[in-house]
Design a protein around this nucleic acid. Structure first.
Lengths: 197, 197
DNA sequence: TGAATCATGTAAACAGTTACATGATTGG
DNA sequence: CCAATCATGTAACTGTTTACATGATTCA
């Protein structure tokens, strides 16, 4: 399911030419401000990277396409101590397209792409300690993510707080719930794996 | 990241020519018995489909490739009331390749592909009720999955039970933990969305 | 009669990746 | 001096998908 036309599980929306996921992701970020390709590739790493991380070259490929479609405008910014850069801004039609993409709910359930679980599923082909190693690595990753998310959370403001950023906080909370579930599962699974000798 | 060369987050393993995820998935299933392409496409839907579901045409494309590599053998089975079929069986080199793939842990963290979360993240571009609709749909899906998984669980046997299938049960438990986390998150998020008017 | 199931494949498109190329500036 | 950062892109590849094609049999 490496997702190709795939859109990774994105079905045909009602609109004839819906955005690709990467286009939507970039447009969404441009909805928050004016960015260069380089800015975006930084932003992706620390922002939406948890659930969508296009390659740098993919970002640069998408930007002129958005301009061509009228969804964004480009502006050259001359810099003294740095190479000149192109900064992009979303247009009204772009906002409309983005809204259309958001509203077109994904018909498909969930990512349905998880090679890690595939490895566990076929774990009988190896020794329990190999599977344990994978599960432990997963647990460590989850714990790191949880620590990071807990750090970031205060910046998004609690519910009711003045400068509350609800939607981004929702996603952050999803991450917390998810990774906490991973840790619980990993602990239970590791215990059972130990019993398997 | 629609996964293309992508291998969706599968890095280069140590082995020069590692299996693709679909090859590994099919080989893994062949490790459990002898199947035709048609059998496999059924099996995928109900079995590993939760985390890997190649297109039917992809399955048929992979099978001869596995034979060519010496990882599987094909045998024609004549049928009276049904078209003849080719059934495939894993070979010893195939088992080795599969084990190699399982042991080559995925260097990348997690699926990092979730258009649903992307929609939530940019939810400020729409109205709260649109986002609520998406979240509710997600919650319903999760509840259906939970019900299904609970039905399937007894068949895999509890820990200690004689006919216990531990690895498949681990994956099933992962699903339960995951979807229960989704439900909790959805409830909390829906409550907050209602406060947003 | 016709829809569903069994059974297998081909052809074309595609979204996104990796690898590579280039070059100036900053900072240790 | 050299590594890292800023900054942008091209070329080639690829794993997988969608759409299509074919045909027999079962069952309502």
């Amino acid at each position: 399911m490496d997702h190709t036309k795939q859109q990774h599980g994105e079905g045909q929306g009602p609109t004839p030419d819906l955005l690709t996921t990467t286009e939507a992701a970039i447009l969404g970020l441009l909805g928050l401000g004016e960015f260069s390709g380089y800015d975006l590739s930084r932003n992706v790493e620390t922002g939406i990277g948890m659930f969508w991380s296009p390659a740098q070259s993919g970002i640069y490929a998408v930007l002129p396409r958005l301009v061509e479609k009228g969804y964004a405008t480009a502006r050259t910014v001359a810099q003294e101590r740095r190479p000149d850069k192109q900064v992009y801004r979303i247009t009204d039609p772009g906002r409309e397209a983005l809204r259309g993409w958001i509203e077109s709910g994904p018909p498909e359930p969930d990512p349905a792409y998880n090679p890690f679980l595939l490895r566990v599923y076929f774990g009988a082909e190896t020794t329990p300690d190999v599977v344990s190693g994978h599960v432990e690595a997963r647990k460590r990753e989850a714990e790191e993510r949880i620590a990071l998310l807990r750090e970031l959370k205060p910046a998004l403001g609690g519910s009711g707080t003045p400068a509350s950023e609800p939607y981004r906080r929702f996603v952050l909370d999803w991450g917390l719930q998810y990774y906490e579930a991973v840790v619980r599962w990993a602990d239970a699974t590791l215990a059972e794996l130990r019993e398997l000798d």
